[in-house]
Design a protein around this nucleic acid. Structure first.
Length: 682
DNA sequence: GGATCTAAAGTTTTT
DNA sequence: CTTTAGATCC
């Protein structure tokens, strides 16, 4: 018990002890949110004595789940069964594994990712852009609207068409027993909604529920939570309305703003003591976010003392900006600052290019966080498709991806013919190939290809046997049969691709070691829900989008592109308050030094545009005349300077006066304090 | 069936 | 300026 309470402040302690009823913990940036939520879980299990199986803690990312699990397990002293602490989607997956049969479906479904989804949609329709349809379907699913409903409420023909595609898409998923990310949640909701007895049973099972990053939940997640709270009201949500930056993806800030309307008699506890940043940084962040109207309202208070002023940096253009940032980073590194304590953030990924050039020129190693995710890389998706076909030969979708890799002389036309004929025979493509005669196949593809296909069928069957009998041999057998690495020869970035494949093999072997009883199917579903967590700690600085930086913190932080049009970014769907929250998230990543940079002109989308400073700079109280970075380094003891009236002198001391530097200058025996901006360096 | 050209578009992205 | 998807050509 002492272990749990020792390092908590009053508000955190109150949040931990309030175990009954709806509770909203408004956790400001850097206010010890994870500590509070993990302590609360430990308190529930250890002190209150709730069986761990009766708690449920949900997060958005695997990374957050992992971190929480580790920290909670460190606090829990009772030797209890580990509590269920996972992502929303993983919970959905587990739930569906147990209950999807109630929807008349088998539980050996396969979870498809966004890429697979787009491919299916493209197959269904050739006209409309798949990205648009994918997001519309996602919106429908997250609003619990089925295809029929979507059709009847659509007014424009375009939307009627989308509803029709949505319907066909659902049929396709059902037919192939596929489940997309949204289904993991909406089918779970459907089950709870249509089966009241299951709903009550589930709610009674999870008597204590905690949700992380509540400001990022959407309508469906709220409704799901309401179902889970059918037989009790012990829902504790943790979040920060000021850090809601996923509205464009369907997150409803209103969920957190109106928590007390959704869950009656809710307690609200604010965590406003910030353990991350210095007061100057928090003052700037507080000043900025106060310009938002839709917020519950809180003010971060630093627990650290002292701290440097926030620095603003103005450059002529993006290359000068990058050069200055590189120079400042070089100075930090030379002072002995660890590279991994430094990060540069931007609103849009396109801004990384000029920055990268500057860093390269300055010889500064950087790590770009985000970008193409590991499991989204083509060569990895090919491998996954192999595994999927081996797990389930009826998976036409994955089969088509690999049927000609390595080349078996099959083109689009042959593949389509085989698919069509198989469909007519009411067989999966694999089944059809395996059971058809040579002459049947030769009518659809070349003779040589037919031979290759026979071999393919044989090899897949062999691998399936190996997978079920000796998982540890599986990867070598796979590479041996299909020569995946050889097929990558001659492709652009060949060595990168091969090392990705090797990494995947390593990952697989690790998984088998860690989960000796798991089969291929378990492995596949687990990795589909995994994001790319580049957690390799290297001697390089980090650069990333503001979105990607959420939850992270850096001793020395630079935010570039602080111009109107970039931050705030303007567009059709843009929401100024969300842009402001992005600025707030960016600023509050900084622990001790924050530098904000803007340019007068930027080259973007093939044209140079003149730009104005972001309004956020003013709103944050960083008006003109604030500290300019160069002054930091350019005046030191012993420098010769010239003053308009007093003439030349020598600097004998440097001190700070408000946002400016004050210099003690000796003008030929006459010593005076002069603001740095009134003299020039000689 | 695969390479090469052309046109259009261009935020942010957990699972 | 890129990148990417589609069309067109061998």
């Amino acid at each position: 018990m002492d272990k749990i309470f020792d390092s908590l402040n009053d508000a955190q302690r109150q949040a931990v002890e309030q175990t009954e009823g709806p509770l909203l913990i408004l956790a400001g940036a850097g206010s010890g949110k994870t500590k509070t939520i993990t302590s609360r879980l430990a308190y529930l299990l250890d002190t209150v004595g709730i069986p761990s199986s009766q708690t449920l803690t949900l997060t958005f990312t695997n990374k957050a789940a992992k971190e929480m699990r580790e920290r909670a397990m460190g606090l829990i002293t009772q030797n209890s069964f580990p509590p269920l602490l996972c992502t929303f989607h993983k919970f959905g997956l587990l739930f569906l594994k147990f209950h999807i049969h109630l929807l008349g479906r088998s539980n050996n479904f396969v979870v498809i990712d966004t890429d697979d989804k787009k491919k299916i949609l493209k197959k269904i329709n050739a006209e409309l852009p798949t990205a648009l349809i994918a997001s519309e379907i996602s919106r429908y699913k997250n609003s619990m609207i089925d295809p029929q409903e979507a059709y009847s409420q659509a007014e424009l023909t375009n939307y009627k068409n989308i509803a029709k595609i949505y319907e066909e898409y659902e049929v396709y998923l059902l037919k192939n027993n596929l489940v997309d990310f949204d289904d993991l949640l909406c089918l779970t909701y459907k089950l709870l909604d249509e089966h009241p007895e299951l709903c009550i049973q589930t709610s009674q099972k999870y008597r204590y529920i905690m949700i992380d990053e509540y400001q990022d939940t959407n309508e469906l997640q709220l409704r799901l939570l309401q179902k889970l709270c059918t037989s009790h009201n012990n829902l504790c949500v943790v979040g920060d309305d000021d850090q809601s930056i996923y509205g464009w993806r369907g997150a409803h800030v209103r969920n957190i703003l109106e928590f007390d309307q959704d869950f009656a008699d809710a307690t609200v506890i604010k965590l406003e003591y910030n353990y991350r940043s210095t007061q100057p940084i928090l003052t700037v962040a507080n000043a900025l976010i106060e310009h938002n109207r839709s917020r519950l309202g809180k003010t971060l208070i630093a627990t650290k003392t002292g701290g440097n002023d926030v620095v603003t940096l103005t450059s002529h253009d993006e290359s000068e900006e990058a050069k200055k940032i590189a120079k400042a980073i070089r100075a930090l590194l030379d002072k002995g600052v660890r590279a991994s304590d430094i990060a540069v953030l931007y609103r849009i990924n396109a801004l990384s290019r000029s920055l990268e050039e500057g860093l390269n020129r300055g010889g500064i190693a950087y790590r770009l966080v985000g970008g193409l995710r590991f499991y989204d890389r083509a060569e990895i998706k090919d491998l996954i498709s192999y595994l999927r076909v081996i797990t389930n030969v009826h998976d036409n979708f994955s089969l088509k991806r690999i049927i000609n890799k390595p080349k078996r002389g099959l083109g689009k036309a042959s593949i389509e013919k085989i698919e069509l004929t198989a469909m007519e025979a009411e067989k999966s493509m694999f089944e059809f190939i395996a059971t058809s005669s040579d002459s049947e196949l030769e009518a659809l593809a070349r003779k040589k290809s037919t031979q290759e296909l026979r071999k393919f069928i044989l090899e897949i069957n062999e691998l399936r046997t190996i997978a079920s009998e000796a998982m540890y041999q599986f990867i070598d057998a796979l590479e041996d049969r299909f020569k995946i690495k050889e097929t990558l020869h001659g492709l652009p970035d060949e060595s990168d691709k091969i090392s990705n494949v090797d990494e995947f093999y390593g990952l697989f072997r690790d998984y088998v070691k860690q989960n000796p009883d798991a089969g291929l199917a378990e492995f596949l579903n687990d990795i589909t829900l995994q994001s790319d967590q580049d957690q390799i700690e290297g001697e390089s600085i980090y650069i990333m989008s503001i979105h990607a930086s959420k939850g992270l913190e850096f001793e020395h932080l630079f935010v570039i592109g602080m111009e109107e049009g970039f931050l705030p970014l303007v567009g059709d769907g843009s929401d100024l308050e969300e842009e402001r929250r992005l600025g707030y998230v960016a600023f509050t990543r900084a622990k001790s030094n924050l530098t904000i940079s803007s340019v007068n002109s930027r080259f973007y989308k093939g044209r140079r545009t003149d730009l104005h400073k972001s309004r956020f700079i003013n709103e944050a109280g960083l008006c003109e005349g604030s500290l300019i970075l160069e002054k930091n380094t350019s005046f030191k003891k012993g420098d010769l300077v010239r003053h308009k009236i007093f003439g030349a002198g020598r600097v004998e001391g440097v001190s700070k006066s408000g946002r400016e530097f004050k210099l003690l200058i000796n003008f030929g025996g006459n010593k005076r304090d002069i603001l740095a901006s009134f003299v020039e360096k000689l």
